[in-house]
Design a protein around this nucleic acid. Structure first.
Lengths: 172, 172
DNA sequence: TAAGATACGTCAGCCATGTTGACATTCCAA
DNA sequence: TTGGAATGTCAACATGGCTGACGTATCTTA
């Protein structure tokens, strides 16, 4: 009963051999490297690391987000995040504004400089993603997204689904 | 979320908005966290890290692999890898045998203890992967794999494709 | 056979980024 | 008015990357 199912078949049951799963695991490993390679190069030039990239990304995608929210998303300690944010603020890439409703909160924004770097990073990463999407085709992209979503921790899925376009429903 | 081109359609052009690509990027980020979460917990108990996991994994999947080959796959420096291997060998999880053809080479193998830990780690990870695969369905799995493969660096794809079942048709 | 290249190990030190723990400040809310 | 929340910060430590330098054994080649 083992090897039968062609890669297509198996509509009902899924025959997931350890071997198939191992390939999936390695695919994640190797792909993640490709996924981070381009931004990593840009970051290295400016002496930043992935931690800075992550902060820039999530501030860029939801301007005005708070430190606490960022801590939640990134899943690191505040001390760790603070070191990164401090540097970004000292370098003038990120700005923290005191909350108007709750003055304890700091709302984070990218400065023009910050936006520029963020754009460079995400463009590099999008290029790679776009190339992969194009190579694999729309059908595959759909499946890709489904599997990734199923692989997330449920709390993370929240942040993911919540991460809708800041402007409107109509994307673009 | 679905816009114009039905998820099926768009054979020719792919309309990939920045927004869609951003979601893909975040999906990778969040999913990768889910992907490593379970093994990370096991590793933490024994005071190992992801680096040890990677070494155990690739030694386990191709017993007898050499240090140089591992360096190639992992893309770290020999000093970095050595620190990890040293510990694994001292702890009796990995064994290095002098090459028979080329006595300069060290061929790496898991000991029984090493195999046990490796199995625990990969089982935890496979469980997660299996659950995601099941939730998403076979079609999606196919797409997932295609996109990931397209996202790898070409040299890494080599290692990936080469990673065939150790038992089967004389790969390698 | 001698010289160079290759595979590996190791020492030493640096850096980024994660961690804990403790403590201060400010401010909201009951 | 007081307790807790949101944040910042100091200090210390661990992991796992990195570079550079050097040593040894072994293979390859002129």
């Amino acid at each position: 009963m083992a090897e039968r199912p062609g890669p297509q078949g198996g509509h009902g049951l899924l025959y997931l051999t350890d071997e198939q799963l191992r390939k999936g695991i390695e695919a994640m490993f190797f792909a993640y490297r490709g996924f981070t390679a381009a931004p990593d190069r840009i970051l290295a030039e400016q002496d930043y690391g992935r931690a800075h990239h992550r902060a820039l990304h999530f501030i860029g995608r939801s301007p005005g987000t708070t430190v606490g929210n960022l801590l939640d998303i990134l899943g690191v300690t505040k001390q760790s995040l603070n070191r990164v944010l401090r540097r970004l603020m000292d370098d003038g890439l990120v700005e923290a504004r005191v909350g108007r409703e709750d003055r304890r909160e700091r709302h984070l924004h990218l400065t023009e400089t910050g936006r520029t770097l963020e754009r460079a990073l995400s463009e590099a990463q999008r290029d790679r993603m776009r190339a992969a999407y194009r190579a694999a085709g729309p059908q595959a992209v759909q499946g890709f997204r489904q599997v990734l979503e199923a692989m997330m921790d449920p709390e993370m899925r929240r942040h993911f689904e919540g991460g809708d376009a800041p402007g409107k429903a109509g994307s673009r």
